[in-house]
Every structure is written in structure tokens, then in C-alpha cells.
């Protein structure tokens, strides 16, 4: 059975799929600005989409710390657990 974290990761990967620069699948190591077609503004829009999807608020202060899809998953998971 998939863990909650796996489910979160799967949801995020599905949302990021259209931003892939190459055929390589999205992993926890995927770098959000380097490996995906997302500039800093698009990242802000993505955060709003994720907030909507998971019914959470992602504090702006945390965004600079998020580099990889793994970081993003961990951040969202932590916010969901704390809620």
C-alpha cells in the first residue's frame, strides 16, 4: 500500500507532468527550475495550484528552500500533517 507521502508525490508529479523539459520521468530528484519549464513566476502560480489541490497554505517563506520535487513533497506533507 502506498504511503501518504507517495500519494502526495504522485499527485504532484501528475500536476508537473506538462512542465517536463525531457522525456525523463519526474523523480524526487527533479530540480523544479532547472529540469522543468518553470520560471520564478510560474513557480508562484504552481504553489497556488498546489494549495488549491491539497487545501493548504504554503508559506512564502518556505518557497526559496524548495529546490526539488522531493523537497516540495516533504514540505506539503509536513503542512498536511500539521494541519
Amino acid at each position: 500500500m502506498a504511503s501518504v507521502r507517495d500519494e502526495t508525490f504522485n499527485e504532484i508529479s501528475r500536476m508537473l507532468d506538462s512542465y517536463r523539459k525531457s522525456a525523463a520521468p519526474i523523480t524526487t530528484e527533479t530540480d523544479i527550475t532547472r529540469d522543468l519549464n518553470l520560471d520564478s513566476l510560474a513557480v508562484m502560480d504552481l504553489m497556488m495550484e498546489l494549495e488549491e489541490k491539497f487545501d493548504i497554505s504554503i508559506p512564502l517563506n518556505l518557497v526559496p528552500e524548495i529546490q526539488t520535487v522531493g523537497d516540495l513533497t516533504a514540505t506539503i506533507q509536513k503542512i498536511r500533517e500539521d494541519a
Binding site: 497556488m48 508559506p59 517563506n61
Partner: peptide, 13 residues
């Protein structure tokens, strides 16, 4: 201002 301060910052639509 949000970056200069120490509070948690949340954006709304």
C-alpha cells in the same frame, strides 16, 4: 517588507 520581517507570509488569490 515580508522578506525583511520575520512573520510567516501567506498569499491569497
Amino acid at each position: 517588507a515580508c522578506r525583511l520581517g520575520s512573520a510567516t507570509v501567506i498569499r491569497f488569490k
